[in-house]
Write a protein that binds this DNA or RNA. Structure first.
Lengths: 127, 127, 127, 127
DNA sequence: GTGGTCTAGACCACG
DNA sequence: GTGGTCTAGACCACT
């Protein structure tokens, strides 16, 4: 579990947590069935409130990424690889569709879009 | 000036205004020098607060899309086509970079990304 | 909006709120589009924490009973009567199925069950 | 003694134990006077904590379903059939009354309720 | 003045 | 020691 919080970001902390955790789960980096550290520990290490962690965990549970057993802990959902792939494509597709609507409103053609991807995919600091 | 506001959206109304106006300007749909309707008129037609319109107009001015002349009105910036193109690429590139960071965190390869673009570009309701 | 909280109940306060509000909406007692009182007002009147109210409201939103517009307020979802009926049957059916599993485990026949309903429907204090 | 524990359920494990044991006793499946296995054995077989089993047994004793003889074991209460019937109706009636209050708050008429019972009694997976 | 987020800290149920 | 719930109170963004 590798988490980096940016308190100055526009994105709420609990959402940053959600995105990073769900990404790790979907990438298969966190094994199904694996027990997450207690929310109080996570909160202490990230120096944020327990409640903020809890809110993120609740979203993860609602999304089917983890399941919580009161008094025992929080466990990574044991999804078969195919289900993980599906989740991943949902996360990506949902978000990309929203973005595409915006890009299209700026008159971006598919060809141009692909050029942007070509240029930007490797990140601003590389290549 | 064709604006559609969704008050139930997660996106603040002023930002919806900003996105749609800046897109129209960058697409060249609003001519340079053209005078925008008075903010009170815009507010009345969209049934939103004057304050909200004002905030959007301020953002547009900060972005160099319009300029205000006190007592006369707000005018679309008179940008040469090349400058408009630049603005457009800024708007797109900035946002796409942020998105790409997220997609990469989900392990999306450039190849896969391009497949997504291929599939989703035309929108969910079209051919 | 008629709410009665029992702080001594086993049921969490936010869930009591959820059940009572969703019932009022599903009964059509709260009109679609109607604006709920500010969460701070509700909290003050019920003498509970704002956060507890908020949590209940979040559940209501997730259930599609209300929708929230930040800075404006919370509004009862504008469901057609047919959709309201559907929601109602979902709420009832879901819960009744769970109960039935228990009753069956006690060996309750359908005939006996119907007798119980006959006897208990009007409440313990009536008839 | 046939017990199935679901650690992921919302219901506390000790309560799952209580419900299943009390049901077996009330159905007459466990004979009066019969000796239950030692709690350590039960705990080991179900792979749960001895404390949890102990708590369930205590509830059962409080409910008059079993009685403990220190140093000898736990024995199913030796109730005459009529008393067993009474217990059963208590368990059912108590719970059904609570449920009915909720159903009535959703505007469910007695007639409708009976229809639901008709429809749902046989369970979702059966004829 | 509205809801959104975050905080610190408390008490309880469960295992 | 785990998560579940609740509290009081603060600051911010949006209208």
């Amino acid at each position: 579990m590798d988490i980096l919080i940016n308190p100055a970001s526009d994105m709420p902390i609990y959402q940053q947590l959600f995105e990073q955790l769900s990404a790790e789960i979907v990438r298969g980096e966190l094994q199904g069935g694996e027990c997450l550290p207690p929310i109080r520990t996570v909160a202490a290490e990230l120096r944020i409130s327990v409640i903020t962690v809890k809110k993120a965990w609740e979203e993860l549970e609602r999304g089917g990424f983890i399941h919580t057993i009161a008094g025992k802990g929080c466990f990574v959902a044991d999804l078969p690889t195919s289900a993980r792939q599906l989740r991943r494509e949902e996360l990506i597709g949902e978000r990309m569709s929203r973005e595409l609507a915006y890009y299209r409103s700026l008159g971006l053609s598919k060809r141009e879009y692909q050029d942007f991807v070509d240029r930007l995919y490797d990140g601003p600091d590389q290549e």
